[in-house]
Simulated scan of single mutants.
Amino acid sequence: MSSKKRQLTGLVSVATALALCFTIAPGAAAAAPDPANEAADLIAEVAPDQGTVVGTTPKGDTLVSSTESGETVVSTDVDEPITFIQNDSDTGGVLEVPLPDEVQLEAPVVADDGTVFYEGVNGTTDVAVQTLADSSIRLQTIIPEGSGASVKFTYDFGADARVLEDAETGQVYVEQGDTIVAEIDDAWAYDAEGQPVPTSYEIREDSIVQKITPTRGTVYPIVADPKFITGTNNWFGGRFVAARFTIAETTRIAAGGAATAAIGTLIGMVPGPHTAIARSVLQGIGATLVLWAGGARALNKCVELRYYYIAHKAYGLYYSGTTKGCR
């Protein structure tokens, strides 16, 4: 063997020995998985319209994300709701969303990008909360393999909240008192390869239930979310009056026999200076109100007629709930 070959063989042996030393040395072990950052990376890769995630600041036992419109407050106690507080204390509202009952979670930790991450107990579904720069909030579930052929998550909004559905567009809103505090964006779910997974929302009383149905080709984990668009209470046009009709009244309006009386009831609620314009707007929507009421009955819900007297616009809204006047 030539001296050059012997030298090369010796170098390879030394390199191999060093590699083995570094491989087994305790200080050189591979870094442990970081579930929070892994979740944030997955969301950034597959979620539609990612947006810019706002960082968090610890305040006592909460994590606070601030935007121009308000603050998202996440408690370190998993039993406490996620809260968005609008900056305008006079007209602003408060959105409260407890974590879904269907999940069991560890205390939250914060990923590098500001995502608040709750790891699921014993490898079950994780939850990731993101406040985006536009003041919207994404409450995402990260669903592992073995979760079942169909998965559901329920989102409540507190005893005083109402979930309303626009009779014309189907858009869903959350209202506290007389303030709409959030618009709920369309349901979405994507798998680990960025492929869409069938999903939909169902309104049950004043809760939203998201159903996710994986297919044979779904690659886990799945990311799904409700996105709450917050930061303004002026979706429709400011101050309003509203007439809510029970299921029996909605049925009569749908039959065409009570629409005129219903509209007259609403006109009587409008403040004096705005009454003339209100009458001219509302007296022309009788046929539309009949259609709205029919749509409500098809969903086993009630209709609310609402008139925004600054914007001079009328809306039909579907609502339900025995404690909210529907029955």
Rank of each mutant, 00 (worst) to 15 (best):
G92S: 12
A107K: 11
A298I: 05
F245I: 01
G316K: 10
E165I: 15
G148A: 05
H274L: 03
F245H: 08
V54F: 08
K59I: 10
A259C: 01
Y315E: 06
C326T: 03
Y173G: 11
E71T: 11
D186P: 00
S150L: 02
A298K: 03
T288L: 04
T83P: 01
E102F: 08
A259W: 00
V74C: 05
P273L: 08
F236P: 00
T131D: 01
K5Q: 10
G321Y: 02
Q176L: 09
G148N: 06
G10P: 04
T218P: 01
A242G: 01
E205L: 11
C326P: 10
T124L: 02
D191F: 04
E71R: 14
A296G: 07
Q283A: 08
A261W: 00
V163K: 00
P214I: 12
E205N: 12
P226D: 02
E96H: 03
I142V: 13
I229P: 00
V109Q: 11
K301C: 03
I85F: 08
A259H: 01
R279H: 09
V151A: 02
A278G: 12
D113T: 08
A298Y: 07
D225F: 07
A25S: 15
I137T: 04
P33N: 09
D185P: 01
V223F: 10
P221K: 05
V151L: 02
D160C: 00
L164P: 00
G170T: 07
E183T: 11
D101K: 14
I184K: 06
I137V: 15
E68N: 12
L63G: 02
